[in-house]
Simulated assay, not measured.
Amino acid sequence: MSRSLRRGGSAAIVLAFAAVSLTACAAGTSSATLQVRPNLPAASIGTDLKLNGIVVVVNPTQTSGEAGPANLTVNISNTGSAPETLQSVTVGGTTATFQDANGRALPGIVIPPLGAVAIGGVNEPSARLANATLTIGGFSPTTFAFSSAGKVDTTALVAPAVGPYAEFGPSTPSASGSASASGSASASASASASASTSASASASGSPSAPASATGSASGTPSGTASASASASAH
């Protein structure tokens, strides 16, 4: 084979390789690829428990370093044949409290065998931090403790309740709850005051009838005297 043919063959191979590379790049811009999101903190403990998407969501008005409430969101899957119970979660030194989907307190969150629990999701149990000091946009040290598997130390992304995390933020019915409680207390106080006034009026009204009767009785002589004086003058 001549040298020119060999050069031509090499050039063809290079062109073919370039075409394959361009095809691969084109595939990389497909909608499926564009949907890939940055990795969130994850952890595993033993061979059965996997924790994915560990995020702590704070109020959008909260600033870094300011103490405030926060909610944990994490998906925990259990590929084992026995249930596991999440007994505690500590984020940045603050321990979370657990509640079921109806807001009732839970001692722990059960991860069923061959199942998963999306803590913080709709109709799922929640893990709430009453007052945590966190750096928004940063990562906070987080510890999960399980009944059988033990503990795992990891980190949680700290994000404000905006965009994809808007529905996962701490609920703020506390203000409306306070207003409601305050309104109820006010209404109750009003009702009490009203009842008290009514009772007082009733009580003072009862003797006022006799007093009035007395007044008219005492007024009678006065009226009689006036009438008499008037008759005398005539």
Rank of each mutant, 00 (worst) to 15 (best):
R3S: 13
R3W: 12
L5E: 15
R6M: 08
R7S: 11
R7V: 12
R7M: 11
G9H: 14
G9T: 10
S10P: 08
A11Q: 12
I13R: 07
V14I: 11
V14N: 04
A16G: 10
A18M: 13
A18Y: 02
S21T: 06
T23N: 11
C25P: 00
A26C: 03
A26W: 13
G28M: 01
T29D: 02
T29S: 02
S31V: 05
A32W: 00
T33K: 02
V36I: 13
R37A: 00
N39D: 15
L40C: 00
A42S: 10
S44M: 05
I45Q: 01
I45W: 06
G46R: 04
K50D: 10
G53R: 01
V56E: 08
V58F: 03
P60Y: 01
P60E: 02
Q62S: 01
T63C: 00
S64L: 12
G65A: 08
E66M: 11
P69E: 15
A70R: 03
N71A: 03
T73E: 02
T73C: 02
S77N: 14
S77G: 09
G80I: 11
G80C: 07
S81C: 03
P83T: 05
P83N: 06
E84H: 08
T85M: 14
L86W: 07
Q87W: 10
S88W: 13
G92V: 09
G93S: 13
T95Y: 13
A96G: 10
T97L: 09
N102E: 14
G103W: 14
L106G: 08
P107K: 05
G108K: 14
V110S: 13
P112W: 09
P112R: 09
P113F: 02
G115Q: 11
G115P: 13
G120L: 02
G120A: 09
V122Y: 14
V122L: 12
N123L: 12
N123K: 07
N123T: 10
N123P: 12
A127Q: 08
A130D: 15
N131F: 09
N131V: 05
A132E: 05
F139H: 01
S140P: 04
P141I: 06
T142C: 12
F144I: 05
A145I: 03
A145N: 14
A149C: 04
V152Q: 13
T155D: 03
T155G: 08
A156E: 10
L157A: 11
P160W: 00
P164N: 02
Y165L: 13
E167T: 13
P173N: 14
P173W: 15
G177F: 15
A179G: 03
A179N: 03
S180A: 06
S180L: 06
A187T: 03
S188K: 03
S190G: 03
A191G: 04
S192T: 00
A193S: 05
S194I: 00
T197Y: 15
A199R: 06
A199Q: 02
A199L: 14
A201I: 15
P207T: 07
S208L: 14
P210L: 08
A211V: 02
S212A: 09
T214G: 14
S216G: 00
S216H: 11
S218Y: 06
T220H: 06
S226D: 02
S230I: 07
A231G: 00
A233R: 09
